[in-house]
């Protein structure tokens, strides 16, 4: 859970951004995992990282062009953080530890699960931040008329605090690993 949090923090101030980011990550993870699994037998071991990064960057570029064309408002708000999916440790981590050693079919399901797990965390964090920071959900007011927005939640410190509490909750609920 400590992996890939750079983009988590930056785009989760509104739910719409969180969802867009989550879906983009799912797409990139799945596409690049399958590609890497397909070429796993002809990839020279020594330069594999560069190859993986190039493949990931290509899919990120596709996702970014798509967002720019069909969701310009969201693309505008996320700015360069879409590009930072490239350096999201989760994708490279899965490529290195799973896709490089398994067939494309298994790599596909692994990437899908990983991607949606990540997207779910983004969704939860962005719901909390938008509700507290703006008093809205997807732009609709939900907190009643007398709600005073916690401005700090929509700003950088809020991202850290919500994520910290989120990890705390997760680790309290799940059994601590020995």
């Amino acid at each position: 859970m400590a992996l890939g949090i750079c983009s988590t923090l930056a785009v989760t101030n509104r739910v719409a951004n969180g969802i867009a980011m989550g879906l983009a990550v799912v797409f990139v993870t799945v596409a690049s995992s399958v590609t890497i699994a397909l070429i796993r037998k002809i990839t020279p071991r020594r330069i594999r990282i560069v190859i993986y990064v190039t493949i990931i960057a290509t899919y990120v570029m596709i996702a970014d062009r798509y967002l720019k064309a069909y969701r310009p408002a969201i693309s505008e708000q996320m700015g360069p953080y879409v590009a930072l999916i490239i350096t999201n440790c989760i994708i490279l981590g899965r490529a290195e530890s799973f896709a490089a050693a398994n067939n494309p079919w298994r790599a596909f399901w692994d990437a899908l699960g990983m991607g949606f797990g990540y997207a779910l965390s983004l969704l939860i964090i962005s719901v909390v931040r938008e509700a507290l920071g703006f008093g809205t959900l997807m732009g609709y007011p939900i907190m009643g008329r007398n709600w005073t927005p916690w401005v700090v939640m929509s700003m950088p410190p809020g991202a850290f605090l919500v994520l910290g509490v989120f990890i705390w909750t997760l680790r309290s609920v799940s059994k601590p690993k020995a």
């Binding site: 850290f160 910290g164 509490v165 990890i167 680790r171 601590p176």
Partner: peptide, 14 residues
């Protein structure tokens, strides 16, 4: 206990 490691670090960062 559950807050040790990454959890508390992120809150400090906040």
């Amino acid at each position: 206990e559950a807050l040790e490691g990454p959890g508390i670090t992120i809150i400090i960062a906040g």
